[in-house]
Simulated scan of single mutants.
Amino acid sequence: MYRTLFSLVLSKLDPERAHQLAFFVIKALPTFGVGRLVRRFTRPDPSLAVDALGLRFDSPFGVAAGFDKDGEGVIGLGQLGFGHVEVGTLTARAQPGNEKPRLFRLIPDRAVINRMGFNNHGAATAARRLGTIAATRKRPVLGVNIGKSRVVSVEDATADYLESARVLAPVADYLVVNVSSPNTPGLRGLQELDLLAPLLRAVREVADEVPLLVKIAPDLTDDQVRKIADLVVDLRLAGIIATNTTIAREGLRTDPAVVEKAGAGGLSGAPLAERSLEVLRLIRAQVPAELCVISVGGVETAADVQRRLDAGATLVQGYTAFLYLGPLWARQINRGLVRLR
C-alpha cells in the first residue's frame, strides 16, 4: 500500500515537503494513545535485544541522525519499532541550513542527495525538549549527534562543539561528534588526526560518563579509517559510527542530467551499501571486540542488517530507505531478523 502511495503521491511532492508531512504524522503518534496501539503491532521480539554502551536496546536497528533533527519525533519513532533514535545533527547556534531546494530523490537508485546544512533550532532548545523525553520511561535509546555551527570557523570548532556537548550530554544516552557531513564548509577537514584528536579529547571531558562516539565519512581512504579507529581506541571513546553520506557519484542508474541538476551534497541510500560495509570491516578488524561500532549506509532489508551484524556491527542504523519503504519499515526489519536467526 505504501509503495503505491509513494509512487502516485509522495514521489510527486517536493522531497522535503513529503518528509515534513510524514514527520508530522510520526510526531502525532503519541497523542491520544494512538502510538501505544501501534506499539503493540511493532514491538521488537525480545530475542532482538542488544546490550551496548551500557544501555539496553530493544532492537539492534535504529534511526540515523538527520531524520529527526531537533528531537521532536523520538517517542513516535520508538513506537514504530526502532530500537534507538539518534537526533540531530544539532549545533550550538540555531541555523536555517542551506537554501532550498536541498533534498533530491534518485528514485532508480533508491537514493537521496541532501545538502540540508545542519538546519536545526540549536542545542539549547533541543536540550529542553530532550530533557523531558529522557525522563520518559517507555522510549527508545536516545543518541544525540552534534556538529559545527556554520558561522564558526574551523579554528574555533572545538569551543563550538563543547558548547553543544555541555547542554546536550546530560539529556543523551550517548553522544556523537559528527565531523563527516559534506554540507558544512571545513567540517570534513576535522577528520585529520591533528585536528580530530584534540577535539575528541575535549568533548570526552565534557561528556563525562556519557558514551562518546565519532561519525566518519565513507570517502576516507582505508588508511585514514584505520588511523581514526586507532585514535578512538587510544582515547578510550565508546565507539565509531560508519558511515555518513558520500560525495561520490559513481555507478548511479539515475539519468546523469538529473544527478547533475541535484548538484552538490551527500549521497545516501543503496549506492552507499558496499563502501559502508567495507569501512565496517576495516574498523572491526582494527578495534577490540567490545568497542561499539554502529553501521549505517545503504541498509534496506533485514538481510542487509544481519549482514552488518555478521560483519561485526554492534548496532545498525537506517534513514533513506524509510523514505522509500514507509512507516512499517522497522517492523519489517525486526520481524525479518527474527526469521533469520
Rank of each mutant, 00 (worst) to 15 (best):
A165Q: 02
D208N: 12
A202C: 07
R139D: 09
L315A: 05
L130S: 02
E163V: 07
A127G: 12
P44M: 06
K12W: 10
T243N: 05
K215G: 04
A135V: 01
T89V: 12
L103F: 03
E205Q: 14
L80M: 12
A229L: 02
R40L: 15
L106R: 09
P288L: 01
E274W: 05
A248Y: 02
D223N: 11
V258K: 11
L193P: 05
V299S: 09
V258E: 12
T132I: 14
F118C: 02
A285L: 03
L29E: 07
A313K: 00
D156W: 03
D70V: 05
E16D: 04
P101V: 07
V85I: 13
F67N: 00
S59M: 07
T184M: 03
G312S: 03
K215P: 02
A124F: 11
L193A: 10
E209R: 15
G62F: 04
A49W: 00
H84R: 08
F6R: 08
D70H: 02
I133Q: 06
S149Y: 11
R308F: 09
D160V: 03
G62S: 07
E16V: 01
V171K: 08
T42M: 08
G263R: 02
K27T: 10
L29P: 05
V85L: 03
I216T: 02
N120Q: 07
G318C: 09
V232M: 01
D310H: 08
T132M: 13
D14S: 03
L8V: 14
V258Y: 04
F32G: 11
A264Y: 12
R331N: 12
R150S: 12
A207M: 06
D255H: 03
E274T: 14
S7C: 11
R204F: 02
V232H: 00
V299R: 05
A202T: 07
N183F: 01
A273G: 11
A159L: 12
D58V: 12
P327R: 10
L48K: 10
D51K: 14
